[in-house]
């Protein structure tokens, strides 16, 4: 079966229903769809097991922070790849900032382990069921999640960056 965005989407909607697969669009040839955190693992498992799809490769996971979207500030992007059909797709899940909890993907993909730790480190996502959810890149004592938009990029200890040097 030739995989196209339409027939994959149709198949997924038939399986999971309109209310769980929504906002599908195609920004760059890779279909992007949104689902809920209740369904994300079942969806990825379905993509993995289905004989026609065989989406069995997790390319990457990335968090995104949208401070202006009330109630759905944090987004987790899963990008999957079917090596058999050379077909890629992207799945997004939005969660509120106060409750950034997602189920873990480590039971399906070993690669998810560190990617989830990175997402926890950068954005504060909590992955339930993760075997070892601790910071990965930053020091354990760090008190905030640096990739959130409200935190500054610069090192706050520099004293030589005074305004006169920058004409401010």
């Amino acid at each position: 079966m030739e995989l196209t965005n339409e027939n994959v989407l149709g198949k997924l909607i038939a399986q999971f229903g309109e209310e769980n697969i929504f906002d599908a669009y195609d920004p760059d040839g890779i279909m992007t769809l949104t689902t809920t955190r209740e369904n994300i693992i079942a969806l990825i498992q379905y993509l993995y097991d289905d004989k026609d799809l065989q989406v069995q490769f997790l390319t990457t996971m990335a968090g995104i922070h949208f401070p202006d979207h009330k109630g759905r500030e944090l987004c987790m992007m899963y990008q999957l790849h079917s090596l058999r059909h050379n077909y890629r797709l992207r799945i997004k899940v939005f969660v509120p900032a106060e409750d950034p909890v997602l189920p873990t993907l480590t039971n399906i993909y070993a690669a998810a382990n560190w990617m989830e730790r990175e997402a926890y480190d950068f954005y504060g996502f909590i992955f339930t069921g993760h075997p070892n959810l601790i910071r990965i890149l930053n020091i354990e004592e760090m008190e905030y999640h640096p990739m959130l938009k409200q935190y500054p990029l610069e090192d706050q200890t520099r004293e030589d960056k005074i305004d006169t040097y920058f004409g401010r």
Partner: peptide
């Protein structure tokens, strides 16, 4: 790298 993680 004037960033939060790099020693200046």
């Amino acid at each position: 790298f004037d960033s939060y993680s790099v020693l200046q």
